[in-house]
């Protein structure tokens, strides 16, 4: 448990300190999959509670932030790079809560930085590998059922998802390019799902094949990009959309490759 101290006038951080911290905070938030509007609101909230004003430019891979201290007319600008990280709503939630703690409990600068470092070091939210694999396999099998797949198709999709998702985790741990990872995972899942049609064991082999790769669909970037469009963050929206499109293209290439290998018709 971290003890907290409310901010007094003497604790007021400099524009430079605030700017450097907010650049770190912003890139962490952007990296974990937050929308641009959430980033702006959280940063403004923290800066306002320390008596500062901010101006932010959000680029797809960089955050450009200027902090002004109206009391002393000090002005400081920082540019920080967004590190590519996996989507983590847990981190997003904890960082958003931190911004409210700063605003409502008047956390001082040192306590806020300490708490931020603690959140980054122990962001959590990840299940055990086995638990995650089982849940994703069950989710994709349920997906198959929602699209009209029979019990055999669901079982085939669960196995194909287990294998594909496990490969994805392993390849990402070896820092292999995410596009190659998506292609390889889709290929493996499609090859395994083609077994339903190949051995004629079920009545909905097409559904099994079509749903076997859906766990790779980049849902969060797609949905984030639309939220960014609503708030007129067009550059970020376009970047996320292109990112999602590239992932879908890789997924399609992997799936088509798997189907060609197994000599499966597409209709």
């Amino acid at each position: 448990m971290i003890s907290t101290t409310s901010m007094t006038f003497d604790d007021r951080p400099s524009a430079r300190q605030v700017c450097v911290f907010l650049a770190r905070y912003g890139t962490a938030l952007l990296g974990c999959g937050a929308t641009c509007i959430r980033l702006e609101k959280n940063i403004d909230r923290i800066a306002a509670s320390w008596g500062m004003k901010t101006s932010i430019t959000i680029m797809p891979r960089h955050l450009h932030i200027t902090v002004t201290d109206p009391g002393s007319d000090d002005l400081f600008t920082a540019i920080d790079e967004v590190s590519p990280a996996a989507v983590s709503f847990s981190l997003n939630t904890r960082l958003s809560r931190l911004s409210w703690e700063v605003a409502d409990c008047h956390l001082n600068y040192d306590n806020t930085v300490e708490r931020f470092d603690d959140i980054i070091a122990n962001c959590g939210g990840r299940l055990s590998r086995g638990g995650e694999l089982l849940l994703v396999a069950a989710a994709n099998a349920s997906f198959c059922r929602l699209f009209g797949g029979d019990a055999v198709a669901m079982a085939v999709v669960a196995v194909a998802t287990l294998a594909g998702y496990y490969l994805k985790i392993l390849m990402l741990e070896h820092h292999i390019d995410v596009r190659v990872v998506v292609m390889a995972s889709a290929f493996v899942s499609a090859v395994l799902a083609a077994g339903d049609a190949l051995f004629g064991i079920g009545s909905t082999p097409g559904v099994a094949l079509a749903t076997s790769v859906l766990y790779l669909v980049p849902g969060v970037p797609l949905l984030n990009s639309f939220s960014d469009i609503l708030y007129r963050h067009y550059i970020c929206a376009f970047s996320r959309l292109v990112d999602a499109t590239v992932t879908v293209a890789c997924l399609s290439i992997g799936m088509c490759g798997g189907m060609l290998l197994m000599n499966q018709g597409m209709f």
Partner: peptide, 11 residues
């Protein structure tokens, strides 16, 4: 499906 896909994004 929602629970399974949610765990990918670590809520």
């Amino acid at each position: 499906a929602a629970i399974g896909f949610a765990c990918i994004s670590r809520p």
